[in-house]
Design a protein around this nucleic acid. Structure first.
Lengths: 128, 128
DNA sequence: GCGAATAGGTGCATATTGCATCTATATTCA
DNA sequence: TGAATATAGATGCAATATGCACCTATTCGC
C-alpha cells in the first residue's frame, strides 16, 4: 500500500475493478476513446490517473468482453480506438453497484454495532 | 481480472483498500484477531475470503501504522495477535468513506448525464 | 518543414493476490 | 495417555497488476 498524500482521499487513484467501473460508467451510452477518458478523469478533480493504466484497463476489459472497440480513422487527429460497453459490461456495472452497496452497508453495520453482535451470533452458531 | 461467478457481486472478494477498510471497520472500537476477522467475513454471507490475504492485510496495515497489535497469551487456545485501530487507521476509514461517496457520485453523474456535458466543459476549457 | 499536441502503446521493477502448505499450540475424547 | 482435530498465524511461489518512464506514429499550427 502506498502512503497517503494530503488532498487526496486515499493513497493513489482508483485501480482494478473500481477503475473499470469508472470507465464503464463513462462509456455507458456514449462511446469514447482512451485518451479522452484519461482527460475526463484527470479533469474530474481527482487528478493524476495514469494513462498507461487506463489504456491497459480498456484492453483488459475488451479481452474479457466488457467493452468492444473499433478504430475511428475519419475524425480529426490520429486514429482513435473507440470503445463501447457490451451487455457483459452493463452486467458488470450492475454487479459493481450491488457490491458497493453491500460493502458500505457492511462498513456501517460494523461501525454502528461493533463486532459484538456478530460475535455472539457466531459463537451461538458454532455452539450448535 | 477474474471471471464472474453467479451469486457473488463480482469475480472474487474485496481486496486491497476495500479489504483494509472492511477490516478497519470491524476493528473500530472492538479489537480482534485475524482468525476471528476471517471467520466473521466468511460468515457474513460473502464467503470465501482468503485467510492468507487477511493475515497479510493486517500485517501490512500494521507496517503502515493503520493498526497496532499485541499478543494475547492468556485466553484459551493458541496465542492471538490482537489488533486495534490507530488514529491513522481512523483517518484512513474517513478517507475511504469520502472516496466511496466520490466514486459513486461520479458513477451516477456519468450514467445520468453521459459524457456529453463533461465533454463540452472540457472542450470549452481546452479552448481557453 | 518543424515543433507541439494528440493518441496509443510497451518495458521493467515492484507490489499484490490466490492457492497450497507449514508450524505450533490447545482441546477433545477414545 | 495420546492421537486426531480445531485454532491461530504465517510463508513460498507462480501469476497478475501497478506506477513510472519512455517510445512510436499521426496530425495540426505556423
Amino acid at each position: 500500500m502506498k502512503d497517503q498524500e494530503p488532498g487526496k482521499p486515499i493513497g493513489g487513484h482508483p485501480t482494478g475493478d473500481m477503475l473499470n467501473a469508472q470507465l464503464l460508467a463513462m462509456l455507458k451510452g456514449w462511446s469514447a476513446y482512451g485518451y479522452e477518458l484519461a482527460q475526463q478523469l484527470n479533469d474530474a478533480g481527482f487528478g493524476n490517473y495514469n494513462k498507461g493504466s487506463i489504456y491497459r484497463a480498456l484492453r483488459n476489459m475488451e479481452a474479457t468482453g466488457l467493452v468492444s472497440s473499433t478504430w475511428d480513422t475519419t475524425s480529426s487527429g490520429p486514429a482513435k480506438r473507440v470503445y463501447s460497453v457490451t451487455r457483459a459490461g452493463t452486467a458488470f456495472l450492475d454487479n459493481w453497484f450491488s457490491l458497493l452497496s453491500w460493502h458500505s452497508k457492511m462498513l456501517n453495520n460494523f461501525l454502528n454495532a461493533g463486532l459484538s453482535a456478530t460475535r455472539e451470533r457466531s459463537e451461538k452458531k458454532r455452539a450448535e
